Computed example of a mutant assay.
Amino acid sequence: MSAQHSLVILARGGYAARGMLYLIIGIFALLAARDSTKPKDSHKSLEALLSQPFGYFLVGLVVAGLLAFAAWRVLQATRDVDHHDKKFKGLVIRAGLLAGGLVNGALALFAMGLLITDLKSSGSSSGQTRDLLAHLLSWKHSNLLVYLIALVPLGVGIAHIFKGWKASFERYFEADADVMRYVRPVSRFGLVARGVVFIEISLLLAISGSTYQAMDPPGMKEALDALQNLPAGWLMLMVMALGLIAFSVYSFSEAFWRKINMDVPGVSRA
């Protein structure tokens, strides 16, 4: 098997792992529409999955897939395999891909920690993270730092909504019209839903501002909790949960039909 073919398998496995993770989050969020004790984020969902039959095997698959996906994102960013170019817009997209690779790599390490250690040991590392956060936020103008950080999920969220609205993802798909007839609307709904969640995370960060203390930063759980606390929140949470499941379908579709360009210098062909 050539190195090029191996990288294609790595990329497709990564998209499938992302799909599995969002499917799990979406299902738990759907259940949480009526039961607020259900997990609504990636960390808690992985912990809940670990307690299920064959949980270790499933989490192990997610770990391998997330590591593959992180490596693919880094390759997309550093080798520009999707030809985003070196203009400002392309550099911003590539920076986002690199950030996504780092986030997925960190999530994979968290899941790996669940497999090889008990939850108490992982809790100590999160305490160290909070200590570092407390040090950063002790700065006089730390609220400005929070506002700057909030721009990241805001940009990601807006990009997802535009990507879903314009269906620009189709240029990367190699699927016939009959397949895209079903993939297109589900993928658009999933991308918009994920974009809304990211924008809400950004707003939660911005609202917290200078009042933000040494705690875990707001994430998907906090965003979905905020929706659930609104009037008819259970309905909004249900719609958003279906959107996250739709995003998992989009990820699985990428695993099957996305163009994986591996015309990369230094990578051997078959």
Rank of each mutant, 00 (worst) to 15 (best):
P217R: 01
L191Y: 08
A177K: 15
M220Y: 05
D178V: 13
L151V: 10
F162M: 11
L148G: 09
R188Y: 02
Y212N: 08
G157P: 07
G155V: 11
V152P: 08
S208G: 00
F173P: 03
V146F: 06
V183C: 04
L191V: 05
D176F: 09
E170L: 15
S208I: 01
P185C: 07
G190P: 05
I161C: 00
V197P: 08
M215S: 02
G164L: 07
G155I: 06
E200W: 10
A150D: 13
R181W: 07
I207K: 09
A167N: 09
R171I: 15
K163A: 09
S187F: 04
G190V: 02
L204D: 06
M180F: 06
V196Q: 00
P185S: 03
S210A: 11
Y147G: 13
E200M: 14
F198G: 11
V146Y: 04
Y212S: 12
V192G: 04
F162L: 13
L148F: 13
I207Q: 04
A159G: 09
W165F: 09
D176G: 14
V197K: 05
H160M: 03
M180R: 12
Y172K: 12
M180P: 11
A159H: 06
G219Y: 00
S202T: 12
Y147A: 15
Y172R: 13
V196Y: 00
V197H: 08
Y172I: 11
A175C: 04
Y172Q: 12
P153H: 06
E170M: 09
L204G: 08
S208T: 03
Y147W: 15
V192S: 06
I149T: 09
L191Q: 12
K221Q: 11
R171S: 15
S202D: 09
A175W: 03
F169H: 01
F189L: 14
R171C: 08
Y212I: 01
R171E: 15
M215T: 07
K221R: 12
I149C: 13
F162K: 05
K166V: 00
H160L: 01
E222G: 00
Y212D: 05
R171A: 12
I158V: 15
L145F: 12
F198I: 06
V152K: 08
T211N: 03
A193D: 04
G195K: 05
W165S: 07
I199C: 12
S187Y: 07
A175V: 03
V196R: 03
V183N: 07
L191S: 08
E170W: 01
I207F: 06
Y182R: 14
R188T: 06
G195F: 05
F198H: 11
A193Y: 05
G157R: 03
G157E: 01
R171T: 14
A193S: 13
F189P: 07
T211K: 07
R194L: 10
S208C: 01
G190S: 04
G164P: 10
L203R: 14
P218I: 01
A177C: 14
P185V: 04
F169A: 00
L154P: 02
S187D: 08
F162A: 03
L151M: 13
M220W: 04
P218T: 11
A206H: 10
K166T: 10
L145R: 06
G155W: 07
K166Y: 02
E170C: 12
A214F: 02
A206G: 14
R184V: 02
A175H: 01
S210K: 06
G219M: 00
V183K: 05
